[in-house]
Write a protein that binds this DNA or RNA. Sequence first.
RNA 1: AUGCUCGAUGUCC
Length: 263
Amino acid sequence: NEAFALHNQMVQTGITPNVVTYTALADGLCKRGEVDTVNELLHEMCDKGLQLNVCTYNSIVNGLCKTGNLVQAVKLMKEMEMAGFHPDTITYTTLMDAYCKMGEMAKAHELLREMLDKGLQPTIVTFNVLMNGFCMSGMLDDGERLLKWMLEKGIMPNATTYNSLMKHYCIRNNMRATTEIYKCMSAQGVMPDSNTYNILIKGHCKARNMKEAWFLHREVVEKGFDLTASSYNSLIRGFYKRKKFMEARELFEEMRKQGLTAE
RNA sequence: AUGCUCGAUGUCC
């Protein structure tokens, strides 16, 4: 609503909206799943003589993917090719992500192939999509192979790349492998982000390694990162089960100071 | 202006 209010205000001031401002609005609507409203907006845009571009298409492709309309999303990519717009790396990566999340790794691979055949350059996000796809499908060996391949090729993984692998090792209670990945990440000079800490802390709590969980929690506080309520809950639960009530209480207080609610 | 990881905690030791 605020975005549209600003849009209207802009028009009243005499500033003409362009494809960028319209795409920003369309993207917001897509992210809220308001596909019908997007259609209206696009018509309005065309009436004003503005043409959709690759970014506009990509926003809508993403919106369709995220609302479970993968078939329509693929159709739209075809449509955009017919209209003379070339799908780019972001279009392909968006669709690959949707296939990966459905567990259709073969389809994702097919798109990667097609993308490379067209001479489009993959980015770190493209590889992260594949990495996360392997992990979500329990194909952690393939994920490890991808990581190794990236390192050999000199493609620098980022925190997201490592986070996917670590999260899924944690889910499978493999803290040994999780720690190995964390070490690899550090050795590569990749800084952990707040997601990294949330993943690791919850993993160690689940494995009842409260010593390590506490250590990482200290690091989070020092670095000024935020822990999620979920991580605090895991920590408190872990200490409580070990009858470490002092630590549990301290975390409880700390959590409340951050404005988070305990269970 | 558009794409990736973070909404969670089964049980016992």
